[in-house]
Computed example of a mutant assay.
Amino acid sequence: MSQTLRHPEIVELARRQGKVTVEDLARHFDVTLQTIRRDLAELAQAGQLERVHGGAVLPSRTSNIGYGERRRLHGEAKAAIGRACAALVPHDCALFLSIGTSTEAVARELLGHRNLLVVTNNMNVANILVANPDCQIVLAGGTIRRSDGGVVGTLTMQTIRQFKFDLAVIGCSALDRDGDILDFDLQEVGVNQAILAQSRRRILVADRSKFQRSAPARIASLGDLDVLVTDAGLEPDLAARCRAWGTEVVRAEAGGGAEEG
């Protein structure tokens, strides 16, 4: 395959996987390691990728990738995370589901739950849960982001503060090696902080791509949460931090199971 054809496919693989490695790409394209290193160097020079040890990742951004693209990426992983998270949600409870394609996956797995009160600032979550007749839905007021159906702003936080939730499920844009939970939108950060403050039990849902990304605004630490549900094993240092914090890590398996760590 020519360089012209390899480059867009390499970028697409990075979008899907979060990171590409020199060795994997060499096997995938049946070319030498040196050829792939040249490809990655040229893509980095063009600003399409960032070089990291052993491979490359998508460039750090100050704005999130588009909602449509986020919805397509890592679909199988998000479905597994949705199942594993929904298994932690009891019947007869009040919960908050925040903005994000992973929280939408959780909502799909709650259609059989009984006697739920769900408050959300995600119009997509509300539309999904309409199919559950045993679920009362409260849509938090505020400013609607046309890009993804999220609702943010001061009115949203005011609505959230009227409740005390048994459980909150939030998503994020990135999760760094120190365990900081990150996002791009300062308004969304404020809303998520209000959600966590009003919840007795707090769960973060994040697929493995979030460990390969960065975002400028901090929501909280994993140490402030009770559970992380993800499809990836954690780096040893972060896993040790979670144990010290008492944050449970649930690894969702694509086949439908979940492993606690």
Rank of each mutant, 00 (worst) to 15 (best):
A44S: 15
D226Y: 11
P133F: 11
Q187E: 15
V138A: 12
V169T: 02
I10T: 02
R218V: 15
V151I: 15
G55Q: 09
R114I: 03
M157Q: 14
L58D: 03
P90S: 15
G246C: 11
M123S: 12
R251T: 12
W245E: 03
L110V: 02
L88M: 11
T143V: 14
Q45C: 05
A174I: 10
I128H: 03
K78G: 01
A232H: 13
I10D: 02
M157H: 00
G54E: 08
R70T: 02
L58Q: 04
H74A: 15
R108Y: 09
N115I: 02
S60A: 15
S173H: 13
D237V: 14
I170Y: 02
G233K: 08
G179Q: 06
D183M: 11
V11S: 01
A174P: 06
K164M: 12
V152F: 09
T62G: 08
C135Y: 06
E76P: 01
I170G: 00
I65A: 07
Q198G: 07
R208C: 11
G246L: 06
E248Y: 00
I170W: 00
S173Q: 13
E188H: 11
D166S: 13
E50M: 11
M157V: 12
N122Y: 05
H91C: 08
F96T: 01
H74K: 10
I99C: 02
G18W: 00
H7W: 13
D231R: 06
Q212A: 15
G153D: 07
M1I: 08
R70L: 09
G18I: 03
E235M: 13
A80K: 03
G233C: 07
E76D: 13
Q187H: 14
A254T: 10
Y67E: 10
P8Y: 03
L116A: 03
H74Q: 14
V205K: 01
L97K: 04
R201V: 12
Q45Y: 09
R251H: 09
L40M: 12
T154E: 15
R72I: 00
V106P: 03
G153I: 08
V106S: 02
